[in-house]
Design a protein around this nucleic acid. Sequence first.
DNA 1: GGTTGTCCTGGAGTCGACTCCAGGAGATAC
DNA 2: GTATCTCCTGGAGTCGACTCCAGGACAACC
Lengths: 169, 169
Amino acid sequence: MTYSIGQVAEKLGVTIDTIRYYDKAGLLPFVQRNEIGRRVFTDNDLHLMRTIICLKNAGVSVADISTFIDLRLQGDTTLDQRYQLLRDHERDLQQQITDLQDTMSYLKFKEWYYQTATAAGTETIHFVPGTNEVITDLDQEYDRHLTETGQLAELKRFANVKDYRLRRH
Amino acid sequence: MTYSIGQVAEKLGVTIDTIRYYDKAGLLPFVQRNEIGRRVFTDNDLHLMRTIICLKNAGVSVADISTFIDLRLQGDTTLDQRYQLLRDHERDLQQQITDLQDTMSYLKFKEWYYQTATAAGTETIHFVPGTNEVITDLDQEYDRHLTETGQLAELKRFANVKDYRLRRH
DNA sequence: GGTTGTCCTGGAGTCGACTCCAGGAGATAC
DNA sequence: GTATCTCCTGGAGTCGACTCCAGGACAACC
């Protein structure tokens, strides 16, 4: 079973141009051509391309993915290098996830800020009276809110957010 | 207490150029100038800039952040719009986190693939004998591995990964 | 009064990852 | 036999978010 570039694009949810761009960039050296010069993709090629797309989703640059593909072409002697490369990107990815979770907890704080302000009809409930400055220890009030609604414990259970308050900027 | 652009850059961990770029882009209309035209930042400005940086971390574009700041300038009538805007970005952010977690589980599968291949000294243990094609139901073997090492249950507990196998491409 | 340091502006350049385009070639449909 | 479709190439253009640069101003120290 083989596929044309259009069918592959459809299957993988990317554009034809993107596939050609990846090919130009050296990510698809394994793809064969037919008599009239058109690309012919096998099921195995699709497997590999899914790995490429996965690495891309993990935030790996096209240049780094190219390195990975080169290693693959060199055969079994590079197995360990490829493993290490994936491990490195796993570390990056974990960092990205943690960062986004931190951002999420800040966003939730801000949502609480606007919810309470909307309820009060004015943002000034969060300001130092007579000024336009936000109360400095609004954190503590938010903590009380989290405790009251039983969300604090849940938040603290987040394995990789040791102290959400430290991370909330 | 006020700060110069250099001090703010230091405090927020961004470059001076980035701050000026944000100012040009309309993200910092609240920042005042002194007699000789230099920017003067207050503690309150820093608060706001942290929110801006948080939104940026959440993947919000500069254009969208600009909208948020504009709404803020319009006062209390826009409180609800600002809340909705944050909610929308929370949804995006949750999607991003879920996607990264899926990518992570695929990456872990690939690591297992290379670990076992390295242990065997050759990648061919994952190929259909006599070919260069990956065994199609390698998934199941990986499942067995996860079960044996007690990781499957843990993986399934991931709230937002309903079926990690569906998502692993 | 010269050097150094931090700031200012407008505008050009960069980078990654596409995305689009012109011009052309086989295959298929009517 | 011509219109339509899908494919090909090289190369130019785009987009967002910076990043850098030239040329200049003020302040502070020596």
